[in-house]
Structures are given as C-alpha cells and as structure tokens.
Amino acid sequence: MIPAGARIAAARSKDGGDVTEYRFVENLPDLIHPEEYAKHPEGKLVRLRISVTPQGVEVLGDAFRPEVLEKILSSLQPEQIEQMLCG
C-alpha cells in the first residue's frame, strides 16, 4: 500500500537503448512526509534528490502526483525508472 500516492521513482542516466525500462522495487526512500500533507492541499509538491553514484547520476523523486514525477523523470531519458507498487 502506498497511500502517499505518487511516491517515489528513481532514474539512472541513460547509456544506450531507446526505451525506458520500468522496474518495480521493494523500497525507495521517502522525500515527503505526512506532516507536509496539509501544507499542500492541491498536491503539487515535487521533491527531487540528485546524486552521483558509481552507476551514474541518480535522480530520486517523491510527489503526490505520480504522473508529474514520471514526466519529469522520463524527460531525462533514463535507462531505467524504478518505482514502488501499491499493496
């Protein structure tokens, strides 16, 4: 179950291939916490964390609206987008 909704996706930099692969992962860290829900009644908050890792640049995102986060991450043309599932 992911009642925070949009939750998190992570993208790694593209190093070839044309299609972004979606991977379903067990866990990704939260960047938005329940205390913030009331401050963003329209659910427009998006939070991103960009890191350089040995595998490449990693962008971790959290948002109330999954499609917004997905658009942002997809625009980076990542090799892979990881996401958590609800349930």
Binding site: G5, A6, Y37, A38
Partner: peptide, 17 residues
Amino acid sequence: LRYTPAYRMNQLAPTAP
C-alpha cells in the same frame, strides 16, 4: 487509503488529512 491523483484520474486533489 488516502487518495492521490494517479493514472487517468489525475485532476483531483489528494485527500486532506
């Protein structure tokens, strides 16, 4: 379960606490 806008139902606001 708190509603958050997703998939084809993405215009509405999330459920208020």
